[in-house]
Design a protein around this nucleic acid. Structure first.
Length: 589
RNA sequence: CGGGGUGUAGCGCAGCUUGGUUAGCGCGCCACGUUCGGGACGUGGAGGCCGGAAGUUCAAAUCUUCUCACCCCGACCA
């Protein structure tokens, strides 16, 4: 606890009258303008006194909520040797995002982007019995990621502070408990930070089947798109949305498949227009739409070991393939486009007219064919006939073709049915402020973390990892708590409880009266920011106070002659004249 | 990594098209005086390798090439 009044006359602070030209988003703009941070390096920021106090408040809250769950704080180096990361494959898997360097002897080192390996190894180093588990340890530390594009100030930097914790359990049931404890701790943490959040299920990606949820703070400038139901509480990352498949339809009475000459139909729209324009193809009940077509896209999957495998994806023609969703499904493989040369090498594929007739592992081209879950048995489609200038209509899934499987890769649209309650979904944006993750045994297996169970048998430990972006949280709070005048901190993270402004000239009564008030507030346990500057005009002080964003502003000014000061709520703008003697009691209440 | 934009004093900007003494303006900063409840005023100051490098030229902030950095949109992002 700080035990002296922060004085504006000596505080290492310079507020800016104008917005910095290189800052776009509100949090970045205001944190720089109000003198909380300065850019020091590409993707790196210096914390100035007000900013550092605020940062430490956030850090303290995170720490208190971790400690409350009985998690124990440790601290690792950020500068680490290559070997542990080599053992788990992440030295190369992390790609360009990893800061790699060499020491004077030429040994490979890295600046840690996250610490799964080191936590796993330290537990391996010290523990070897099931009796030692469960265990959760955490640290609050700077992480390094060589982001392709740092942006938005503190929201995405190359060096940032993260609270990362890791749980160690003997079995899956234990992991579920550790995971649930973190989930609750995170909810409490973000509540205290004054950060609204939604919890969305996220993709487990390469880990396969493990549970993972992200805490997103909803905001327009967020980088993550997620969907939420307009009726129930379902929400999910777009990558993780599970489409509710329609029920299969009976084949009875469906017309037979028919190949049609369709010249000059390079797009889905021209194809639909042609079908609607021709009397012999027109539907009796309604017009054809893009949703009646089946669009087939071929891509190449490149696996980390270098193998390249083609994959065909079929989606309804009214949707594009969402590359992010596709990538999440095929991780750790990367997606590469199917090039002209690939088409040339594969004569079974008619570019632009690819259909189920040529796709599938059992076909001549031998390409695995997976389709959107909406393509259930009994649905009929207009799709490529595998011959230039020809499409086929009434091609029925389950009757005329069978895919090798389904895949969640089609775009999600606003208005799509919620998989839980089938009401409309809507799209929203948010910034990831926390992520909880059931890792399973990947790291324990790779690094040999085992313990003996009660039967003396060796068991691989199962792990979870859990992160909160501490520096990002400061920015997220700022982003969601500001107005056109400046920042408006929630009480617990604010750099002070009260901002006392003394107006008048040096020889007036206001300054000594404010000085006494500041001392009284401090004695009452309030954290005080005191604008004791002389020769600074009142307008400047008022504007600075609003910019800095301490929750309560007390003006010791012209009302002093009547024995009152003005107490102003920064958030609501409400102001009241309060007798000097009652101020401390009012602020404490 | 693609597309777009911007680099001139601590901050915000003008000047560049059409090259020409000593590079300007506002804010901030320093000194003195006045002022003192919504970013006061006067007078006098300090502060610049015009992002960097190479070139063209008698002469470059200005033209050319290369490079670096920052911002935005995409790609990427435990």
């Amino acid at each position: 606890m700080r035990c002296s009044v922060l004085r504006m006359s000596t505080l290492f602070l310079r507020t800016l009258r104008e917005d910095p030209s290189d800052a776009e988003v509100a949090s970045h703009r205001l944190l720089v303008r109000a003198g909380y941070i300065r850019r020091a390096a590409p993707g790196g920021f210096t914390w100035l006194p007000l900013g550092w106090i605020t940062f430490r408040n956030v850090e303290r809250i995170v720490r208190e909520e971790m400690d409350r769950e009985g998690f124990q704080e440790v601290h690792f180096p950020a500068l680490l040797p290559r070997e542990p990361y080599e053992a788990t494959g992440r030295w190369s898997d992390y790609g360009d995002n990893l800061f790699r360097l060499k020491d004077r002897r030429g040994a490979d080192m890295l600046l840690a982007p996250t610490h799964e390996e080191m936590f796993t190894l330290v537990v391996k180093d010290l523990y070897s019995s099931y009796k030692d588990l469960p265990l959760t340890i955490y640290q609050i530390q700077n992480k390094f990621r060589d982001e392709a594009r740092p942006r938005a100030g503190l929201l995405r930097g190359r060096e940032f502070t993260m609270k990362d914790s890791y749980s160690f359990d003997i079995d899956d049931a234990g992991l579920d408990v550790s995971y649930a404890k973190h989930r609750v701790a995170y909810q409490r943490t973000f509540d205290r930070l004054g950060l609204p959040y939604v919890i969305v299920s996220a993709m487990s990606g390469a880990m396969g089947g493990s549970k993972s949820e992200e805490f997103l703070a909803p905001m327009a400038i967020g980088e993550d798109t997620y969907v939420r139901c307009t009726a129930c509480d379902y929400s999910a990352n777009t990558e993780a949305v599970q489409v509710a498949p329609p029920s299969p339809v009976a084949f009875d009475g469906l017309p037979a498949a028919q190949v049609v000459d369709t010249p000059d139909t390079p797009t889905i729209q021209t194809l639909v227009d042609l079908f609607n324009a021709r009397a012999d193809l027109r539907r009796a009940d309604r017009d054809w739409t893009a949703a009646d077509t089946l669009k087939n896209l071929v891509v190449k999957l490149k696996y980390p070991d270098g193998t390249i495998v083609p994959l065909a994806i079929g989606v309804p023609g009214d949707r594009e393939v969402d590359m992010k969703r596709l990538e999440a499904q095929v991780a750790p493989a990367e997606i590469e486009p199917f090039s002209e040369a690939d088409f040339a090498a594969n004569p079974h594929l008619a570019k632009g007219y690819i259909g189920p007739g040529s796709l599938g592992e059992d076909k001549a081209a031998g390409i695995r064919f997976v389709v959107d879950p909406r393509i259930v048995d009994g649905t009929a489609w207009i799709t490529g006939a595998d011959s230039p200038g020809k499409h086929v209509v009434h091609l029925v899934a389950g009757r005329d073709f069978t895919a090798d499987g389904t895949i969640e890769a089609a775009e999600v649209h606003a208005g799509d049915p919620c998989p839980r309650c089938s009401n409309d979904l809507e799209m929203a944006r948010g910034i990831e402020i926390g992520h909880i993750f059931q890792l399973g045994r990947k790291y324990a297996e790779a690094l040999g973390l085992t313990v003996l169970d009660e039967n003396g048998k060796t068991r691989v430990v199962t792990m979870g990892s859990y992160g909160i972006g501490v520096s990002r949280a400061v920015a997220a709070i700022a982003e969601l708590n500001c107005d056109d005048k400046g920042l408006i901190w929630p009480a617990e993270v604010a750099p002070a409880d009260v901002h006392i402004v003394a107006t008048g000239k040096a020889t007036d009564q206001q300054l000594p009266a404010a000085e006494i008030l500041a001392a009284e507030c401090e004695a009452a346990g309030l954290r005080v920011l005191f604008d004791d500057r002389v020769g600074v005009s009142p307008g400047v002080k008022f504007n600075d106070a609003e910019l800095v964003g301490v929750p309560t502003i007390v003006v010791v000014g012209r009302g002093l002659a009547d024995g009152v000061v003005e107490v102003k709520d920064r958030r609501t703008g409400e102001r009241a004249d309060v007798p000097l003697a009652d101020v401390v009691a009012r602020l404490k209440g």
